[in-house]
Design a protein around this nucleic acid. Structure first.
Lengths: 156, 156
DNA sequence: TTGAAATAGATGACGCATCATGTATGTTGG
DNA sequence: CCAACATACATGATGCGTCATCTATTTCAA
């Protein structure tokens, strides 16, 4: 077993700062969505994907891959969203194992109402704080880390 | 009410990539700690702070501020860690409302055993993918976002 | 064609995070 | 001094995320 390559001071500081930003930013975005629109960031993402789909509906397995969620997470989450009337489950004629998840009118209204505020918050809290060069570097850097996390997947 | 300032394509892409990296990196770090050391990242952070404290113990309210956690989150979390024998609660002579949380020997062993693998994973998955300039930009950028999130706190 | 394997999805258990609330003790202004 | 307020901490309820497991159906190879 080789020596641990500990982090240097600069790395420590950058890492800690990144972690803090990540935690706080996520919390702020969730809080905004929750208080202004009564939904979580997870709800938001589900609704966005459904909105982009033809007829506002998708097979759960498609949604799962788009979101990169675990299957059971999605299933549980859809159950909760269904209970709140944001989506509904429909039979799938072509594959009797499967199903469709579809936006309800209420779900469509909810995402329509939520989107502007959410995007505005992302812009205000994040992009407005950064230069275009920083945004560019971040995108590039994140892609590199993604490649390292999973060399197979295209990091975008 | 003014027009929504939607995100441009570049911004969309950078934002999505950042979100993906964030999610996957956190998942990978949690997985590594969980499988190699049987603890979560949250456990790890609690143990690190206790290790750095004199006598390996702190008042819960100090720990809370250091971690920037909600009070009840910490309380619940300490209960679970106590149940697993990683920490113990002690009376606080000076303030009878209060308490101390202290590392147990098992807790100390756990963090000592977990740290090298965790740091190595952070280095491998994150720092090894980046140039020093990128690390620098990230730290700077994160500090700016933190300032925007909370102008009062020193973003460090 | 049929049995094995893969796929689609649901579910229960359990740890985690937050919110609302409760209790005890300390602090302070009148 | 003491009533009001603030602080330290715990707890119960509920939504969320993961793991293990289950069922039903489809696919595929011998």
């Amino acid at each position: 077993m080789s020596e641990t390559r500990w982090l240097g001071d600069d790395e420590q500081r950058a890492w800690r700062t990144y972690l803090r930003m990540q935690t706080r930013l996520a919390a702020a975005l969730n809080r905004q969505l929750q208080t202004d629109s009564g939904m979580s960031l997870a709800d938001y993402e589900v609704l966005v994907h459904l909105t982009d789909a033809p007829d506002g509906r998708l097979r759960p397995y498609e949604l799962q891959r788009a979101l990169e969620w675990e299957q059971s997470r999605l299933s549980h989450h859809l159950s909760r969203m269904q209970r709140r009337g944001l989506v509904e489950r429909q039979d799938c004629p072509g594959d009797r194992r499967g199903a469709f998840v579809a936006l309800t009118p209420a779900g469509r209204e909810a995402i329509t109402a939520a989107a502007p505020g959410h995007v505005e918050t992302v812009r205000t809290l994040f992009f407005d704080a950064l230069t275009p060069e920083q945004v560019d570097t971040l995108g590039q850097l994140a892609a590199q880390v993604l490649t390292r996390l999973d060399p197979a997947s295209p990091a975008e």
